[in-house]
Amino acid sequence: MRSFEYLAPSTLQDALAALHQRENASVLAGGTDLILRLKRREQSPSTLVDIKRIEELDGLETGVHGLSIGAGVTMSRIEASAVVRQDYAGLHAGAATVGSAQIRNRATVVGNVCNATPCADTVPPLVVLQAQVRMSSQGGERRLPLEQLFTGPGTTVVRPDEIVVSVEVPLPEPGTGSAYARHSTRAAMDLAAAGVAVALTLEDDNETCRRAHIALGAVAPTPIRASQAEDILSGQALTPALVAEAARVASTEARPISDVRASAEFRQEIVRVLAARTIQAAAADAQRRQAMSRRSG
């Protein structure tokens, strides 16, 4: 690791000022990716701005409008949240899949998003749940749909003087369920060879799909939507044949590469299998949420 200046400001303002004043500064959150890259000298910033002491970035807020995940919130906190498990099942599954207990205690959701690795486990679920990203700089604040954040593997539109302060996830409307599944060679501690997230909204009959969102991870330079597969499901009754057809189409929308983890052909086939399972799991989650809200309403 090359040497660097380390700053640990306690306010967002000070952190933004530090980024503004310095040429080659990096934001440090959980560090599970960044410290590894520093060790490998894949990145050699002259300053690290540690944002973990900034209280206003540490909130995991849940409310009637949705979920606000501050930049300091770890995977473990997402995993432990009963609200996330209840209303954002796909995100819960994604966070619980990341790394090991030790990694989940450090790694943050916002960090997972900012690193923009195509195989990030929380990104496809956040995409189908229509998450927005909030960024701050000295010039002010802006918001973008998460889908528009990525420009390529490891690259985003976040500027060097900006901090992603939170990811905002709207509360899924009644009748909506979500799910995430991924395949990796080992069950734990491994990067995804392919991941599929689905959010479905069912009509009151609990069978017809009003709207579907499907996102694929690790099978393209950035996480992508399988929009043709979404169209196949929309407005239709979720029969096994329809689900199989949507899954087949989703696999043709994947644009995977061959690497050490899997060949392109295998990845495509995994997407088909995972998509079918995940569509069904999201529908089951929608029915479960529907039943809960009937009971409580």
Binding site: Y6, A8, G31, T32, I35, L36, D50, K52, S76, A101, Q102, I103, N105, R106
Partner: peptide, 16 residues
């Protein structure tokens, strides 16, 4: 254990 939570100390900086 960092504040009671298991972490990998190879991925934490001493200053943190």
């Amino acid at each position: 254990l960092l504040d009671g939570q298991p972490v990998n100390s190879c991925l934490v900086l001493g200053v943190e």
